[in-house]
Amino acid sequence: MSNLKQVSIYTRGITTASGAGGYGAILLYENQRKELSGGFQLTTNNRMDILAAIEGLKALKTRCKVTLYNNNGYLVDAIANNWALGWQANNWKNSEQKPTANVDLWEQLLQFCSQHDVEFIRIKQSAGNQEYQRCNYISRQAANQQNLPADEGYQR
């Protein structure tokens, strides 16, 4: 049996009609709870979902056994099916030899995943999960803030 702390992380990334984006992450460990969020002027939903996972994992102080929940198939499948590791091994080219999008974030996410025992689980957006709904709320609040910074890694 593992002596690692077992942490659940719910993550969500969103974008608004104006192109602003927000992310939210909720970390749960025993009776402890931590909420993280942030936003950017112009970005993509995929970038915000990946960033939410990064920020959640980055907040952990020691190696943990993590179950990370998100509804984005691109994010969950890229980690669960080792696609991101394949892209990295292929010099950030996909199976069609085209450049992988969001390399700046995938590199960070893979680094944080290597520091923990992480399982990614896709959660249905309409599942009614209270933590996921809260995560959706805080990410939307973050995207609607004034004077958001630029997403330096976002390229149109």
Rank of each mutant, 00 (worst) to 15 (best):
Val118Met: 08
Asn71Phe: 02
Ala80Gly: 00
Val66Gln: 00
Tyr132Asp: 12
Asp77Asn: 15
Met48Thr: 08
Tyr137Asp: 15
Asn82His: 03
Lys61Val: 02
Leu27Gln: 12
Gly19His: 01
Gln155Leu: 08
Leu36Val: 07
Gln97Thr: 03
Leu109Gln: 03
Val66Pro: 00
Asp117Pro: 05
Gln125Asp: 12
Trp83Arg: 13
Ala53Gln: 09
Ile26His: 04
Glu131Met: 11
Thr11Cys: 05
Gly24Pro: 12
Leu51Arg: 12
Gln88Ala: 11
Asp104Gly: 04
Thr67Ile: 07
Ser126His: 12
Ser139His: 08
Phe112Leu: 11
Glu55Met: 15
Val66Arg: 00
Lys34Glu: 15
His116Cys: 07
Lys93Gly: 13
Ala52Thr: 08
Gln130Glu: 15
Asn147Lys: 05
Thr100Val: 15
Arg33Tyr: 03
Gly21Leu: 11
Lys34Ala: 14
Val66His: 00
Leu148Met: 09
Val7Glu: 00
Trp87Arg: 02
Lys93Leu: 15
Gly153Ala: 07
Arg12Ser: 11
Gln115Met: 11
Val76Thr: 11
Asn72Gly: 00
Thr67Tyr: 04
Ser139Met: 03
Ile50Tyr: 04
Gly38Asp: 09
Asn70Val: 01
Leu105Ile: 10
Ile123His: 07
Arg134Trp: 11
Gln145Tyr: 06
Ala89Ser: 09
Tyr23Phe: 14
Glu96Ser: 10
Glu96Cys: 02
Asn94Thr: 06
Arg33Glu: 08
Gly22Leu: 07
Asn31Cys: 01
Phe112Cys: 01
Ser2Tyr: 00
Ser18Ile: 04
Trp106Asn: 14
Arg140Leu: 06
Arg134Met: 13
Tyr74Met: 08
Ile14Gln: 00
Lys124Ala: 12
Phe40Trp: 13
Leu75Phe: 04
Lys58Ala: 01
Leu109Asn: 02
Gln141Ser: 07
Ala101Asn: 12
Asn3Ile: 05
Asn81Arg: 01
Met1Ser: 10
Arg33Gly: 01
Lys65Gly: 00
Gln155Glu: 14
Arg33His: 04
Arg122Ala: 14
Asn90Met: 12
Thr67Trp: 00
Gly21Asn: 12
Pro99Ser: 12
Ile121Asp: 01
Ile79Tyr: 03
Arg156Asn: 14
Arg12Thr: 05
Ala53Ser: 10
Ile121Gly: 00
His116Ile: 09
Asn31Val: 03
Asp77Ser: 14
Ala17Cys: 10
Leu109Asp: 05
Asn91Ile: 02
Ala84Pro: 02
Glu152Lys: 14
Val76Tyr: 03
Lys61Phe: 01
Leu75Met: 05
Leu85Phe: 08
Glu55Phe: 04
Asn46Cys: 09
Leu42Asn: 08
Lys124Trp: 06
Asn72Arg: 02
Trp83Gly: 08
Arg122Pro: 06
Gln32Gly: 09
Asn45Leu: 06
Asn82Glu: 05
Glu35His: 03
Ala127Arg: 09
Leu60Arg: 10
Arg33Thr: 02
Thr43Glu: 14
Gln155Asp: 06
Gly21Phe: 09
Phe120Thr: 14
Glu35Asn: 03
Asn144Gly: 10
Asn129Met: 04
Gly21His: 14
Lys5Tyr: 07
Asn136Glu: 06
Val7Thr: 08
Ile138Val: 14
Gln111Ile: 09
Tyr74Lys: 04
Ala25Tyr: 02
Ser18Leu: 10
Leu4Asn: 01
Arg33Phe: 05
Glu107Ser: 14
Lys61Cys: 01
Thr44Pro: 01
